[in-house]
Amino acid sequence: MPEIKSVPLSRAAAPRPGSASRPSAASLRYAAPALLGYVAVRITGVAILLIAASATGKDGMHRLAGRWDSVWYQRIAEHGYGYEVRLPDGTFHSDLAFFPLLPALERGLSALIPPLGVAGAGLLVSWLASLAAAGGIFAVGARLYGRRAGVLLAVLWGAYPTAFVQSMAYTETLFTALAAWALYAVLTDRWITAGVLCVGAGLTRPVAAALIAAIGVTALWRLFTAWRAGEPLRTQLQMVVGACLAPLGWLSYIAFVAVREGHPFAYFDVQADWNNRIDGGAALAAFVVEQFGRNVFAGLGLCAAFAFLFWVLWLCVRQRPRQPLPVITYCVVVVVISLIGSGYFGSRPRLMMPAFPLLLPAAVALAGARRRTLPAVAVGVAALASGVYGAFTLLGSGPP
C-alpha cells in the first residue's frame, strides 16, 4: 500500500493543495466515472440474478421489490403503522421496528406516479438513492485521497458481498446516501447541511446513531481545540446548530414509538421482540463457539473473517489523519453496532455495508497500483463474485 502522509486534524476540512482549480468532488461531471462504474457493477449483479432466476423458473424482480423486509415497508406505506404478527412462541413482530422515511417516500412517489405502485416506488427510491450514495462515497474518497481512489471506493462499494441489497427496496442505499453526504458536508464545514442530512438518516435506520456520534464527537473536538486556541466560540455557531440538529430525526422516531406504546423504551422493546438486543457481542460469541462444536473448520473460518475485519479496521484507524475524525468515528461505530447486537449472524455483513470507509485501504492500494489493469481486474472479479452470491442468496433463503 502506498505511503500516506499525515494531515493534521485541524486541516481535515481544508481544501487539498492545488484544489482551487479542480472541480468540486461533489460535481456531477467530476463524479461521472464513479457513477458509471457503480452502475456497471450493479447492472452486472442484477443481470446475473435475472439470468439465474429465468433458468430456475423464478421471478427475480419480485425478489428485489416484493419480498422480506420490503413487504413490511410497503405495508406501512399503504396503511401506516399498526401491523404485527404473533409468533408461535408468543412474541410479536411489530412494524414499529421499521423507520418511516422509506415508506413515506414510497407512499409519496406512488401517489405521484400511480402506475408504479408502492413496490415499484420502493425499488425506484432505492435505485436513485444508490446513485446518490455512490456519488457521496466518491465525494468523500476523492476529497481524502484523490479522484481515482474515490472512483474505486464507490465501485468497490457496489461490489460489496451483500451489495445485492443495494438493488432491493430496502433502506441501505437511502441511509448510506444520507450518511455519505453528511460526512462530506462535515469535511467541507457545511454543518447545517450535515445536521439536516443526519435528521433524514435518523428517520431511515437505527444505525444513524453512528452518524450522530461522528458529528457530535467531531463538533466537541473542534470546540475543544477552538477553546484551547483562544478562538471565540461564537465563530462555531453553525457547527453547534448542525450538531444539535443531527440527533433529532432518530430521537423523534424513538419518541413517536414511546408515545404510541405508552412506554419510554417501547422502541427497544419492539426490537427485542425481533431478537435485536444490545448484548455486547454475547450472541455473536456463542454463535462462533457453536460453529466450532459443529465443524472446527467453520469456526476457524469465522475467526479468520473477524481477524480480517479487525485488520482492515486497524488500517483505517492507522490512517486516521487522512481518514478524519468524523469518517473514522462513523466507520468504527457502524461496525461496533453491527457486532454487539443479538440478531441473526447472517445479517451482520449487511448491517456493516453502510461502513463504506472500510473499503478505503483497498481503494487507495488499487489506485496506487503500478499495473494499471489491476484495478479493473480486481473490480471485475469482485463484481462477478458479488453477483453470483446475490443470485444464490435471493433465489434461496433471501437476505436476513
Score class of each variant (00 low, 15 high):
residue 52 A to D: 09
residue 3 E to I: 09
residue 297 F to R: 05
residue 161 P to L: 09
residue 213 A to M: 08
residue 219 A to D: 01
residue 2 P to M: 07
residue 229 A to H: 04
residue 146 G to T: 11
residue 91 T to G: 06
residue 147 R to P: 10
residue 309 L to A: 12
residue 337 I to V: 14
residue 36 L to D: 05
residue 62 H to T: 08
residue 29 R to W: 09
residue 75 R to E: 12
residue 213 A to I: 06
residue 68 W to C: 02
residue 263 H to V: 00
residue 167 S to D: 13
residue 351 L to N: 13
residue 390 G to R: 12
residue 112 L to K: 00
residue 292 F to T: 05
residue 57 G to W: 05
residue 29 R to D: 07
residue 261 E to H: 09
residue 364 V to W: 09
residue 101 L to C: 07
residue 249 G to L: 07
residue 123 L to E: 04
residue 28 L to A: 15
residue 392 F to W: 15
residue 63 R to D: 02
residue 383 A to D: 03
residue 85 V to L: 15
residue 168 M to D: 01
residue 386 S to E: 03
residue 325 L to D: 14
residue 387 G to R: 10
residue 322 R to L: 03
residue 260 R to K: 14
residue 73 Y to C: 09
residue 215 I to P: 11
residue 31 A to V: 10
residue 82 G to Q: 01
residue 162 T to A: 11
residue 280 G to L: 11
residue 336 V to Q: 04
residue 387 G to Q: 12
residue 124 L to I: 13
residue 155 V to P: 08
residue 112 L to A: 15
residue 213 A to E: 09
residue 156 L to K: 02
residue 214 A to K: 07
residue 371 R to C: 04
residue 195 G to W: 07
residue 304 A to C: 10
residue 45 G to V: 02
residue 296 V to N: 00
residue 305 A to M: 13
residue 232 P to L: 08
residue 49 L to Y: 05
residue 255 A to C: 01
residue 293 G to Q: 01
residue 286 A to W: 03
residue 144 L to F: 03
residue 280 G to R: 08
residue 72 W to M: 01
residue 387 G to T: 11
residue 302 L to S: 02
residue 17 P to K: 10
residue 326 P to C: 03
residue 4 I to N: 10
residue 171 T to Y: 09
residue 216 G to C: 01
residue 295 N to Y: 02
residue 308 F to C: 12
residue 239 M to H: 04
residue 203 L to Y: 00
residue 305 A to F: 10
residue 261 E to R: 12
residue 330 Y to E: 10
residue 92 F to K: 15
residue 295 N to S: 13
residue 185 A to M: 06
residue 138 F to P: 13
residue 120 G to K: 09
residue 194 A to H: 01
residue 20 A to T: 04
residue 271 Q to N: 07
